[in-house]
């Protein structure tokens, strides 16, 4: 696989960018590991309570909460029956996932405000601890990828 052919660079519009090419090539191992990390949170073998479609929907939702529709569109195609959750206006009620969606949104947009009570609320709603960790990994990876893409887009913007 071409280490630079990644979701991150496609979303940043940077594949083939001249000024950033040498720098990106120097960090190709990081881009390759980033793509592997994406697979680990979006398409894990052990997905616990949250299947691949729901994970893609939540990833797209987190992109939209960050104002990044281009990256959201890269995930929406695999969201299947959960596709409407990509819209941050959907509170998850139609899937009985309100508390999960509320937690995802808070961690994505206001991590500084998250407290132990938010974790207890999930636990009381029946979410198992391993699934809380899996959800947090998904949310955390998306925070990383969205910011990496936002930063890389500056190189593209700078060229134009």
């Amino acid at each position: 696989m071409d280490a630079l052919d990644t979701t991150t660079l496609r979303a940043a519009g940077l594949k083939g960018s001249l000024s950033a090419a040498a720098a990106l090539q120097q960090r190709a191992n990081i881009l390759h590991l980033t793509q592997k990390a994406e697979a680990a949170v979006l398409r894990p073998k052990d997905f616990g309570a949250y299947n691949h479609e729901l994970r893609h929907a939540l990833a797209g939702r987190i992109c939209n909460l960050n104002g990044d529709q281009i990256t959201a569109d890269q995930y929406s195609g695999n969201a299947g029956t959960y596709a409407d959750l990509i819209d941050p206006g959907n509170d998850g009620g139609n899937y009985d996932l309100e508390q999960l969606v509320n937690f995802i949104d808070k961690v994505a947009t206001r991590p500084s405000d998250v407290t132990e009570e938010d974790i207890k609320t999930l636990q009381k709603a029946g979410v198992q601890d391993p699934d809380i960790v899996r959800l947090s990994e998904l949310n955390s990876f998306m925070a990383y990828q969205i910011r990496l893409i936002a930063g890389l887009r500056l190189f593209k913007e700078y060229e134009s």
């Binding site: 961690v107 991590p111 500084s112 998250v114 990994e137 955390s140 990876f141 925070a143 930063g151 890389l152």
Partner: peptide, 17 residues
Amino acid sequence: ILSTALFGWANRLMHIL
């Protein structure tokens, strides 16, 4: 960009969990 983005990830594990 990479180190800052990485801590968008790390913070959301350490501070949340």
